[in-house]
Simulated scan of single mutants.
Amino acid sequence: MAPMIGEVLALSLMAFALGMDAFSVGLGMGMFKLRLRQIFKIGITIGIFHVWMPLLGIAAGKFLSNQFGAIAGYIGGVLLLVLGLQMILASFQKEESRFITPVGFGLLFFALSVSLDSFSVGLTLGIYGAKTILVLICFGGVATILTWIGLFIGRKVQGWIGTYSETLGGSILLVFGIQLLLPF
């Protein structure tokens, strides 16, 4: 039972880290007058993408693990390190106005862009044999909730929180990458 609790906690932290991207962008998007129906639809769409992208990653990771064995484990750790560093560095760059309207293809593009990193993490989790259903529930649920929170807060405040949330998410992934490369 204790290993299961540890896995749920680790997956929840990873899901939180990955969802911070959606939260951050949701803050900015929430500053536009969105109806509650739009907010609901945006959160659900991002949650669905945060289920499918890691599922694809897990499938690819399991394949790589079967083909390359131990080397695949190091690749997974390096992927998390790179992804974490990229998120941290991106949080310090000045944002150009890259707003895409959250309707139709714009919503699909937005959902895909904030869930691409969950493919990479899914790849790593597939290599390490994480429980697929648990990953998908954690990633999809947390991404949906963080998106909704970001959109609602964005309706109330300015976007200064976004930079810090992306830095926090990147730091969490960085720590997991280090832990995978240097097991304690």
Results as ranks from 00 to 15, higher is better:
Ile75Ala: 14
Cys138Asn: 10
Ser12Ile: 00
Gly57Cys: 14
Asn66Thr: 10
Ala72Arg: 09
Gly140Tyr: 07
Ala130Leu: 14
Ser120Pro: 13
His50Val: 09
Ser24Gly: 15
Ile58Phe: 02
Leu13Tyr: 01
Gly177Ile: 01
Val51Thr: 14
Gly169Ser: 04
Ile71Trp: 11
Thr101Asn: 03
Ala130Arg: 13
Phe119Val: 08
Gly77His: 01
Phe63Ala: 09
His50Phe: 14
Gly47Val: 02
Lys131Gln: 15
Trp52Val: 13
Ala17Glu: 04
Lys156Ala: 09
Ile42Glu: 02
Met29Leu: 12
Gly169Val: 00
Gly159Arg: 03
Phe119Cys: 06
Gly104Tyr: 13
Leu9Arg: 12
Gly140Phe: 06
Arg37Asp: 15
Ala72Ser: 05
Tyr128Lys: 10
Gly106Asn: 05
Arg98Lys: 11
Leu136His: 04
Met20Leu: 09
Ser65Val: 15
Val25Phe: 13
Ile127Val: 07
Ala130Glu: 09
Ser115Trp: 04
Ala130Gln: 08
Leu107Gln: 05
Gln38Glu: 14
Trp148Arg: 05
Ser115Lys: 03
Gly6Ile: 04
Glu7Gln: 15
Ser120Gln: 08
Phe32Arg: 15
Leu112Lys: 14
Val135Leu: 08
Phe184Tyr: 07
Gly126Trp: 07
Ser118Asn: 09
Leu112Ala: 12
Arg37Cys: 13
Arg98Tyr: 06
Gly140Val: 07
Ile42Ser: 01
Ala90Met: 11
Leu173Lys: 01
Ser91Ile: 00
Ser171Arg: 06
Leu134Asn: 07
Met53Thr: 15
Leu81Trp: 01
Gln179Trp: 10
Gly47Tyr: 00
Leu85Ser: 01
Gly30Ala: 09
Thr147Gly: 00
Gln179Leu: 06
Val121Phe: 08
Gly162Asp: 10
Ser12Pro: 00
Gln67Pro: 07
Gly47Met: 01
Gly106His: 02
Gln179Ile: 05
Phe139Met: 15
Lys94Asp: 04
Gly104Glu: 11
Ala70Ile: 06
Lys33Asp: 05
Ala59Phe: 12
Tyr128Phe: 11
Ala2Asn: 09
Val82Asn: 03
Cys138Thr: 05
Asp21Met: 15
Leu13Asp: 03
Leu56Gly: 15
Gly106Tyr: 01
Val114Leu: 04
Ala22Cys: 11
Gly69Asn: 09
Leu13Asn: 01
Thr144Glu: 15
